[in-house]
Design a binder for these strands. Structure first.
Lengths: 251, 251
DNA sequence: ATTGTATTTCGTACGATATACAGCGTACAA
DNA sequence: TTGTACGCTGTATATCGTACGAAATACAAT
């Protein structure tokens, strides 16, 4: 053997996701933790304090072990985050909607929106196409079924799903940002406005940006007045359903 | 004065964005750099090596100054990134499309897509609603004009724009990820597949995930065959335009 | 001309971070 | 009983953002 002698095998990401790890040779101390325990601790941390608080140190601390202990269960931080996401996908709500494809696809969009609103860190962690873990596979299967047998080609089904999930993510991110800004500026809102009004009035004059000023004001007032946090989702969902309907009827 | 005596004023983000800084009292050594020089150096770094390579140390090095020197021009790294984004928005292509609102909105979508493809870091840096810098304002004004006077309310114009920009960002992120994966797996593709095939075949059986396996295979082959990197954009764009048409005609 | 002072620049340092490495102790295999 | 594979952890390295204070500078005031 050359250098490959230490075959010891850092587990591939897929093996980790599917928990298909080579049978441990049962020697030495028993494991005090499990992959799932580590993943769950990390998810709780992310839910409570955001993804930037998920550090190996803090996860280890919440489990009562030294930081380096985590590396027995997980090759590194990036893999841990993938595992967190797949765990979330595995247990997310999968509404079985009655009715036609519109109702089914609307349910898919709303389930995804609810997931991203409940776990805002998932939006920033998720790479549009996550690796093929068990959670992602179950999610993909369920979501494609909403689009199956309605006259779309297989490729169109995949395109349509990516299209819907794309703007759902955007809508959730926008709502999450609105939350954050509302929370941050809760007290300091008046004072922020006071200190920035002169500049904004000087610079946002209606001659240079007539449309932006008019529409921005209208949108801002609508948001403050009767704020429906899922407004962006519902608007986009109706447009997306209508747009897909045009494709389906035409085909 | 209490503790607010050191009025020295770290500049607010808005003042930085608009370059409306309190007139410097002309004392001490002349400035060797400008905000724009710092921002441009950071953008070049991000374009060349990605956002994770934009560190205060590296930006400073590329300008030939010590790291702490940057803090004379910019309060911190997060503000620098906002400035980078607004600079990009300020000089991005703004196609003046002939024809109706469909052509105008398609041009908006494609301009944004081109921006995000040329500067992939912008997708990860951008918070859905960027602060009101000069670049963002000019962008917002131009994009709203594509939707003005076609029968939408002001609030609907804002909604429609957010909807389109949302899935454009998603499409660009997906394409960028595909690029990355293609580059990473270029050499190791065969060997990755070899080492993961047994697991995938075991775990992705067509009984548990019939739709996912069928559609995933079709989509994968379509991508490999005649790969159109902007495929996701064009699909979503047609659906979005049709969906908005339904809203406009109904209204 | 001299002195004072506001400003730019930068060396050093601190507290984070991920994680490589090597030692220690455990508990099964032989 | 002993050897050893493996779980656990203390220490160390290389990053990062950035706080702090000193040195250098060039104008204002005298």
């Amino acid at each position: 053997m050359t250098s490959a002698s230490a075959d010891a095998a850092k587990p591939h990401l897929l093996e980790l996701l599917w928990r298909e790890l080579p049978e441990t040779a049962r020697r030495g101390p028993r494991k005090g933790l499990t992959i799932d325990a580590v993943v769950e601790a990390a998810i709780e941390l992310a839910d409570a304090e955001g993804l930037e608080s998920v550090t190996m140190r803090k996860v280890a601390q919440s489990l009562g072990v030294a930081p380096m202990t985590l590396y027995t269960y997980v090759p590194g931080k990036s893999e841990l985050i993938v595992l967190m996401l797949d765990a979330l996908y595995g247990r997310m709500e999968r509404t079985e909607a009655a009715g036609g494809w519109r109702e089914r696809l609307a349910a898919v969009a709303r389930d995804n929106y609810a997931l991203l609103r409940a776990h805002p860190w998932a939006a920033s962690a998720s790479q549009t196409r996550p690796p093929l873990g068990p959670g992602q596979c179950a999610k993909y299967e369920h979501e494609l079924r909403a689009l199956d047998g309605i006259g779309l080609t297989d490729v169109e089904m995949d395109d349509a799903l990516a299209f819907v999930l794309g703007f759902v993510r955007a809508a959730a991110a926008e709502a999450a940002q609105a939350d954050t800004e509302r929370a941050e500026s809760a007290v300091s809102d008046r004072e922020w406005w006071e200190s920035n009004r002169p500049l904004l009035e000087k610079v946002l004059d209606a001659e240079r940006f007539p449309t932006a000023v008019r529409v921005g004001q209208a949108a801002g007032e609508a948001h403050e007045a009767a704020y429906d946090p899922a407004h962006g989702l519902e608007f986009g969902l109706q447009r997306a359903l209508d747009g897909l309907a045009a494709l389906i009827e035409r085909g």
